[in-house]
Design a protein around this nucleic acid. Sequence first.
DNA 1: CAGTCGCCCTGCGTGC
DNA 2: TGCACGCAGGGCGACT
Length: 271
Amino acid sequence: MPELPEVETTRAGIAPHLVGQRVVEVKVYQRQLRQPVTPGLATALKGGVINAVERRGKYLLLKSGQGCVIIHLGMSGSLRLVKRDQPLEKHDHVAFLLASGKSLRFRDPRRFGLVLWTRKPPQQHPLITKLGVEPLEANFDGDYLYAAAQKRTVAIKQLIMNGQVVVGVGNIYASEALFRAGVHPARAAKRISRVRYERLVVAIKSVLAEAIKQGGTTLRDFYNGAGEPGYFKQHLKVYGRSGLACVECGAAIRQIVLGQRSTWYCGRCQR
DNA sequence: CAGTCGCCCTGCGTGC
DNA sequence: TGCACGCAGGGCGACT
């Protein structure tokens, strides 16, 4: 489900309802996620005030004076704000009850997501320390990606989806960015020129920024914190379009598998 | 070290 | 209507 634009949309949607709010209670209905929900979370956070809601890659960070909740939405996770007495939905695993009378619900059918608690600064957490650069920040540029690609034979699509290189680029936006840049997704990373990396970085930044503006991509079940879908789906040019005509040249969009993930591209526009 | 693969889990669409 | 199968927006750890 969520790549960087969807996580950022979620963050922006829930932040105004959380910042300054006291957490009255934390309820954990299912602790078995990708990792178990941190056992001390409910006790540690209860009574604390959320000072900030930040994002690092695809991780959401709810910061309080006592520590930080680290949330990852995995493939199917979502967060939404509801009235506290609203009935639980199936797969609601954690609820953060707020003094305002609202409840932040973490729902995740496939349970690939995470809800963790750390007292240390979150950037010191093992899952966060190893993360690569933020794609929308200035230090992600053509030189950086070109340098990261040297000596690497892996397909370029897998390189830009590698969170230790650059965070937040998932399966949808990787295909879309490569199409915009005219780069074939299976091309070995080290076989791409510096100039083409400049173009690719611009493409990644633009596709992510535009998707954020549209509130993300709703394929099936992504909704922002208020329950509204994202509208970037109608701007997708290759993702999920096997056999359909390329919007640029009319050739049929092809589908292959790279790193066990479906990949779409135009064999004529992308080299 | 880089790269490949299996796997965690549930739900949905398709084809028989 | 039911069932089997493949596939899904992610990422880790074991292995070569």
